[in-house]
Design a protein around this nucleic acid. Structure first.
Lengths: 227, 227
DNA sequence: GCGGCGAATTTGTGATAACAGATTTAACGC
DNA sequence: GCGTTAAATCTGTTATCACAAATTCGCCGC
């Protein structure tokens, strides 16, 4: 770690740690309730405490982590009510984003979204579940991006980050939708038809199904929090 | 500053700096475009760079500040579009909060809100403009609180924080509403009548008027950013 | 005067060390 | 054996230091 002391590419170390942690969180590497330790993370990444500390502080601010006793940071445990609230807000905000996206998307945008969904379906059929999660996130983020509302997009990203640690429960789950009637397909159709209302309903249906599926598993997710 | 070296009351220094900066931001002490310097703030507060650094990192995460060139943090400049987006989201989210608040608020809750509004009106008539801003914020936050949706409340707080630095423009402004028809009064009536739809509309009207007023001043706000 | 170049200062970043509170471990007494 | 307590360790917080990138300032040549 002495080899490249100061960040050479103008890239800040703290930002890299932050990004890395964010990704690991979305990949459900850490379980709800797990405590993240400064020195462990610093050693694994080969950096000092300082950038890790800054990254954790930022993640706490984003509510991706919570400060347990004014001391250490841990992955939050979501109660039923809290998960319901997050999903309700996602339906509200992603619904609005989808509506606006449908009103402004070009055919090329719709194609791009279709490509993401195709890769996601392919990953699912091939059993590459983590990749499926990543592509699913990409689909929703790209849809938000098409709405051209950056503040809204940041808020939605924050809401996703809260649910990330729960998604490992999806890894061993059966299909949530039958492929031919996946809400993503309907979203893509809505974009092509410039039908805002349809896009909103489709994305809300997608979230509702996700919400129900996770909610059923929530007891066992929160029970196995000793690790 | 050597007097109480280590935080005695179990209070973290970084948290205190964060809270202090947040409040100064809401009181419009710093102008949009102004750069916040680590060593200046550290000296003013009598602490070292470390806690200031963490506080700034958190505020950047909350989008209360922005990182300008991957280096220093500054108070964001809001474009017309951005301000419009923030206000649109506030109307959406605070509208929802008001609706839920109206469905669950007790008469005592309505009284409390009426008390806050009374203090706000009093401060305004007495010419204590900064106090008026504080009480106005308190009114909206308390309304969100009554909705019993903590995630929603956090998001709304974040949106307020983005507008905080703009509010100094309100200090020298004429009344936005004639006192007898202030939307806050209608909100209180809606709470007493358990009328969710009315509460939503009233809060949205309040925000819309605010939005228009600030929007008119935005050019001069952003012009005087040499600070 | 004016423009560009280089040194000095400013400013943020990361590592390290000292420290305090909490937790774990160990030992002792009963 | 069991409970209590004290020592050792773990863990997060802060201050200080060293360093690099950016900015500022001043000097020189034209």
């Amino acid at each position: 770690m002495d080899a490249e002391r100061q960040s050479p590419g103008g890239e800040r170390l703290a930002a890299r740690v932050h990004q890395w942690l964010r990704q690991e969180l979305m990949r459900s590497r850490f379980r709800p309730g797990e405590k993240l330790k400064l020195r462990d993370l610093a050693e694994e990444l080969g950096v000092s405490l300082t950038p890790v500390r800054e990254a954790l502080a930022r993640l706490v601010s984003e509510n991706a982590l919570e400060q347990v006793d004014h001391r250490s940071a841990r992955v939050p445990l979501l109660s039923d009510e809290r998960l319901n609230e997050v999903c309700e807000l996602r339906m509200e905000l992603e619904g609005k984003a989808a509506e606006r996206a449908a009103e402004r998307a070009s055919p090329a945008d719709a194609d791009r979204l279709a490509g993401i969904h195709a890769r996601m379906s392919e990953a699912r059929l091939a059993g590459r579940a983590p990749e499926m999660l990543i592509e699913n996130e990409r689909f929703h983020m790209e849809l938000c991006n098409l709405a051209d509302m950056p503040v809204l997009q940041q808020i939605v990203e924050g809401l996703w980050l809260r649910c990330g640690p729960l998604n490992f429960a999806l890894l061993h789950m059966r299909f949530l939708h039958r492929p031919e009637e996946h809400p993503h397909n309907e979203i893509i159709r809505a974009l092509r038809a410039r039908d805002g209302a349809l896009a909103r309903l489709a994305v809300q249906r997608d979230i509702a199904v996700y919400s129900q599926a996770i909610l059923r598993r929530l007891p066992e997710i929160n029970a196995a929090r000793k690790g």
